[in-house]
Every structure is written in C-alpha cells, then in structure tokens.
C-alpha cells in the first residue's frame, strides 16, 4: 500500500502511459523552470505526434527543442516560439503546426482546464487574428471573445521542493506556468529538485496542493541560462 506516496523511482515509471498522439501540458518559461529529465525521457521513449501546450519550445539542443530532432511534436500551442532553427525549418515545411495563443490567455486556458471551467471570455485578442472565428459577447459595452480551456493526457512540471504526497513549492520565476500546468493534466508528473517528507513543507506556503499531482520523481537539473545578462 502506497497511500498518498506518489514518488516513483525511475523516469520510465514517471512517464509510463504516454503514447503517440497525446497532449502534454508543460510548465516553464523559456528554459526557466522546465522539467528537464521528463523531457529527456519523452525523447528516449520516442513517442510521436504529440501536441505540446507550453509557452515556448525550448532551443535547438535543450528543453522541448530536443523533441524536434526526431519530429516527435505534431503541434505546439504557445505564445512565443522560434528561438530554434529546427523549429523554423519544420514549421516552414509543414511538419509542425503552431497555434499561437496570447500568453495570458494560454495561462488562463490551463487554469480553467484544471478548474473545470470549459471556456471563458477575455478582451485579449478581440479584433485581431486570434479572435477570428471565435464567439464575441459584449459586457458593459466592451467586446470579449470566448476562449476554450485546455487539458492534457499528461502534464509535466518542475518543482523546487515536493513532498511525497505531491505538495509542491516553486522557486523564484521558475514558478511561471508550472502551477497551472499541474492542475490541467489527467496524469500530472512533477520533477522536483528535492523531495522531502510530508510535514517538512509549511502547509500555508504550498503553491500546488498534492491532490493535483499523480507522480513525483527526484530530478537533476542543468538549469541552462538562455540569456545571461550582467549588471554593467
């Protein structure tokens, strides 16, 4: 009996059940706060035709960018992409589809998906290509467009500290999309920098309650910096 103990001991166990054609929601902003080991495991598994919901798609040899090498990604739902040459190449050749989504709308789509709200109205994107074909409704004299929530078969998340029950705390701006991603997966996998015992984390400081989390794995991270800028 493992009760609420969600810790798994191998990356294979962490990503077990991921198959071709699934949708994966990933935390991270650029290369900050990405579940590096889980991405590497998806590459190792070789699953294909994946849809990724993630703000960005990494760089050529790091982050989600490594899944482009074997053409594992069919579609990206992102706010900003193209930091990688391979991405551009596959996009132009039609091998890769991109659904550009405003950053705040993307975060809210994940949040709504995890919170059981199927759609929401937002002013963001009204009158732009993003609003084309979407229902418009006026509230207090202002037009809003209807945006649908997103959920995925899997969500992959990077936490700073997670306890065995799946309660998570994020560190600095590595938080970003991780808390929403954690709520929006049917199976949510957390890769943590440190796994602690239940009770070690202050309950009132927890960002993601363990109820959203199915599996926790101890990760090891390179934490690559995308744009190193120093004070002059």
């Amino acid at each position: 009996m493992s009760g609420f103990d969600k810790v798994v001991s191998s990356y294979a166990d962490a990503m077990q059940g991921l198959t071709d054609g699934m949708t994966v929601i990933a935390g991270g902003f650029g290369l900050c706060g990405i579940p590096e080991g889980l991405i590497a495991e998806i590459k190792r598994m070789g699953v294909k035709n994946l849809t990724f919901v993630s703000n960005n798609c990494g760089v050529d040899d790091f982050g989600l960018g490594i899944l482009l090498e074997d053409k594992q990604i069919k579609k990206m739902i992102s706010s900003y992409v193209g930091e990688n040459a391979l991405f551009e190449q596959q996009l132009l050749s039609g091998e890769l589809e991109v659904e550009l989504t405003p950053q705040g709308t993307l975060a809210e789509k994940m949040r709504a998906g995890g919170a059981g709200i199927p759609a929401f109205y937002t002013a963001t994107g009204y009158g732009t290509p993003v609003g084309e074909g979407k229902e418009v409704k006026e509230f207090n004299g202002r037009p809003y467009i209807l945006e649908e929530a997103i959920t995925g078969e899997f969500a992959i998340v990077r936490a700073w500290k997670a306890d065995r029950y799946g309660n998570c705390i994020y560190r600095h701006t590595a938080q970003n999309f991780n808390p929403m991603a954690a709520t929006a997966g049917k199976i949510t996998v957390v890769e943590a920098e440190e796994i602690v015992e239940p009770g070690d984390l202050d309950p009132s400081q927890i960002h993601t309650p363990g109820i959203y989390v199915n599996r926790v794995i101890q990760g090891s991270f390179e934490k690559r910096i995308e744009r190193r800028v120093l004070a002059k």
Binding site: S78, S79, Y80, V81, G82, E88, L91, L92, L100, P102, Q103, G104, T105, T124, G125, T128, V130
Partner: peptide, 11 residues
C-alpha cells in the same frame, strides 16, 4: 515573415 508569436503583448 517568420511569425514568432505575440507573447504577452495582446494581454
């Protein structure tokens, strides 16, 4: 031209 995305500008 290559479209990289709107990021947070629309929001």
């Amino acid at each position: 031209k290559l479209v990289k995305g709107m990021g947070g500008a629309m929001d």
